[in-house]
Amino acid sequence: MTKILAVDDSASMRQMVSFTLKGAGYEVVEAADGKLALEQAKKQQFDLVLSDVNMPVMDGITLVKELRALSNYKFTPILMLTTESAGDKKMEGKQAGATGWLVKPFNPDQLLATIKKVL
């Protein structure tokens, strides 16, 4: 089963994202910030990481950099799901090694189609 790590500091956002992904048959593990996500990623291998950008403790861009530094996450798709639509932030994400950028509010069909495309 394809395993996705869903990272967001908002509990209601994690719930919506999990609901959408589980409904499409994915296994989902949730994390509330970048640091907790990194711990999870080191414990088990995920096929895709879907992360928010603005989070306490460790933000999403730092998480991407940290994941890309791990040999087993060099090529894992990492999608950012964020309220940020500014070009410079997006550029930062791209340079850190993110695979794609989705702006909230997300459309569930669009999110699932994007995940399918990058897996």
Partner: peptide, 10 residues
């Protein structure tokens, strides 16, 4: 016009 956000793949 539902306010769905944009998607960009790098």
């Amino acid at each position: 016009q539902p306010k769905d956000g944009a998607v960009e793949l790098f």
